[in-house]
Computed example of a mutant assay.
Amino acid sequence: MDLGQRTDDEQTKLWNGPAGRAWVEVQPVLDQMFEPLEDLLVAAVATGAGSRVLDVGCGTGGTTLAVARRLGAKGSCTGIDISDPMITAARARAEREGTPASFIRADAQSHAFAPARFDMIISRLGVMFFADFVRAFANLRHAATEGAQLRFIAWRSAAENPFMTTAERAAAPLLPNIPARRPDAPGQFAFADQRRVRRILQESGWAGIDIRPIDIACTLPETELVRYLTRLGPVGLILHAADDRTRAEVIEVVRAAFAPYVHGAEVRFTAACWMVGARAPS
């Protein structure tokens, strides 16, 4: 979801309102879609030296729980997110599974972490929404031990991710109030420019910065496509308040626009992302 036009307070309100509730509702679909990205982070934890892991922007906790299961008794994983509905869902999942992950409902940009608490910090598409990126990554650096690893995945540009903007492009003639994306604002594609990402990490005290492009095949069931496109992203937010006629028209037009991605019972697209690595200097 792109919240790039919103202030920090507005983001807090949204993630604790319709946006957060929508992510909880569609959680199984999103977990399936982004499982390949989750797998990359779980593998990074497994091959690294970290045993106390922080998952930033953890949402409903899929990656946090996967890491906690992988670490077992050898370590721990804590998720942090600004959204109360999503953190509530994450805690409930952990309790149902009996997985000993913990969750913090807070803004990682300003949360008072204990110093040198974590020896690995990860994020799956969760670090592009901060109001002040340098402040946020400096705060994460404060929470990291000396030599701690940072590994996160972020979207590359909107142009490289046409699946992610199909709904708003198709719906634009019917929904003229869809907010325009600003590439320099916090939001889904805020980290499109790897030079900007490198500068943010350098200014916030991280070293050993490594930024690599990855292109990951993702899927979701065709039967879930309409639910996905009507609940998430800018179009999903507007449809919450749309009248029945407008809603029906938008769904028809937008569903047709996704036809190139539909292959029988499966929807397929490529997630064009950055895999970013860094370390806290000793």
Rank of each mutant, 00 (worst) to 15 (best):
G208N: 15
R247F: 07
Y228R: 02
D243T: 01
F269E: 06
R212K: 10
P234M: 05
P213V: 06
G264I: 07
R255N: 12
R279M: 08
W206N: 04
R231H: 11
H240K: 09
G236I: 01
M275S: 12
A217F: 13
R247C: 03
H240F: 05
H240T: 09
A278E: 04
P213L: 06
F258I: 08
A248F: 05
A257C: 08
A241N: 05
F269L: 08
D244Y: 00
G208L: 12
L232A: 08
G236D: 00
F258M: 09
C218T: 13
T223A: 13
V226Q: 12
A242C: 03
R268A: 06
L229P: 00
H263R: 10
P234C: 04
A207C: 10
R279V: 10
I238Q: 13
R227Q: 11
I238V: 08
A241F: 03
V250C: 13
A272C: 15
D243M: 04
V250Q: 13
M275P: 00
I216P: 06
V253L: 15
C218N: 14
A259H: 10
V276A: 06
D244V: 12
R279W: 12
R255D: 11
I238H: 12
L220R: 01
A217I: 08
T230D: 03
E222N: 07
R231V: 00
P234V: 10
L220Q: 01
E224A: 15
G277A: 14
L220A: 03
E252W: 06
D215S: 14
E249G: 02
R247G: 04
W206T: 04
T246G: 05
A271G: 15
H263M: 03
D244R: 09
V226Y: 01
I216N: 08
V226P: 00
P213S: 10
G264C: 09
G264Y: 05
H240C: 05
L220C: 04
R255Q: 12
L225C: 07
R279N: 11
V276C: 09
A259E: 15
L225G: 11
G236C: 01
Y261D: 07
R231M: 12
G208W: 10
F269G: 04
L237F: 06
L239N: 00
G264V: 09
V254A: 15
V253Q: 15
C218G: 09
L237K: 09
T270Q: 02
L232D: 04
T219M: 08
A278T: 07
D210T: 13
P234S: 13
V254S: 13
P221E: 14
L225W: 01
W274E: 05
